[in-house]
């Protein structure tokens, strides 16, 4: 069965609490780069919460928008990789094959969403912080580009379980770490090709939009506009 994984982020629910940011660090073995690394802009966040100011005091507004890899249908990152390290997988993910990557960083340049990060260092965890590492996820090393995978390890595990039990994957059974953690339930993950799934129902909302539509990358992350 063909699937197209996608995500809906409801900006009217999102409160900017950043639980997703830390959940992603914990799940995907993202390294912390420390003060000096952060000062040089080398943090490894796969997920960030953008914030936009509007107006001046006291009539001031602030808006939040979680941004992760948009898993584009027509991804600018895929066409520029000289070694096919980034490619489109059959389930509609922009996949990054770490052992093909030679670190040209063309993909990072091409990405209009700034969703890709580069390993400028070999990650180091002060012992025993290394014990927190998730054994289901590769630890990437210096010179590799990496980015959000929609928690592919969680997708794979549910797929293996579903083959085992011969039960189809239920809608909502797969939850990437960010979706799982989101306290305000602002994020929904699922199969956009299944018209009955929650994610595709929400994607048909009249509030639905995509980030930087004009680029034409056809993202599979759909934002629901905030109402006010």
């Amino acid at each position: 069965m063909k699937r197209q994984w996608g995500m809906v982020i409801d900006l009217d629910r999102c409160t900017g609490c950043e639980a997703c940011v830390v959940a992603c660090h914990a799940e995907n073995n993202l390294a912390t780069v420390g003060r000096d690394g952060a000062a040089r802009g080398r943090t490894m966040h796969w997920m960030r919460v953008e914030r936009y100011w509007e107006g001046e005091f006291p009539e001031v507004r602030l808006r939040f928008q979680p941004v992760l890899c948009q898993q584009c249908g027509d991804a600018p990152c895929e066409s520029v990789c000289p070694v096919y390290a980034t490619y489109h997988n059959p389930e509609g993910l922009n996949a990054q094959v770490y052992n093909r990557c030679i670190g040209t960083r063309y993909c990072g340049n091409a990405c209009p969403y700034n969703a890709r990060v580069f390993n400028f260092f070999n990650p180091v965890w002060d012992k025993p912080l290394d014990l927190q590492l998730n054994p289901d996820v590769s630890v990437r090393s210096v010179g590799i580009m990496e980015k959000c995978t929609f928690c592919i390890q969680r997708i794979k595990q549910v797929e293996i379980r579903s083959q085992e039990s011969k039960q189809p994957i239920a809608d909502g059974e797969i939850q990437p770490a960010c979706v799982q953690s989101c306290p305000a339930n602002a994020m929904v993950f699922g199969d956009l090709d299944d018209p009955k799934s929650k994610v595709s129902q929400l994607a048909r909302s009249n509030r639905a939009t995509r980030l930087l539509r004009e680029v034409g990358a056809q993202p599979n992350v759909i934002y629901l506009r905030s109402v006010s």
Partner: peptide
């Protein structure tokens, strides 16, 4: 050097990318 000091990362002097 890494063990003595405290930087939380090291820059690798390696010529290739995909190996720890």
């Amino acid at each position: 050097a890494k063990q003595a000091g405290h930087p939380s990362y090291v820059t690798s002097g390696q010529f290739t990318t995909a190996h720890p």
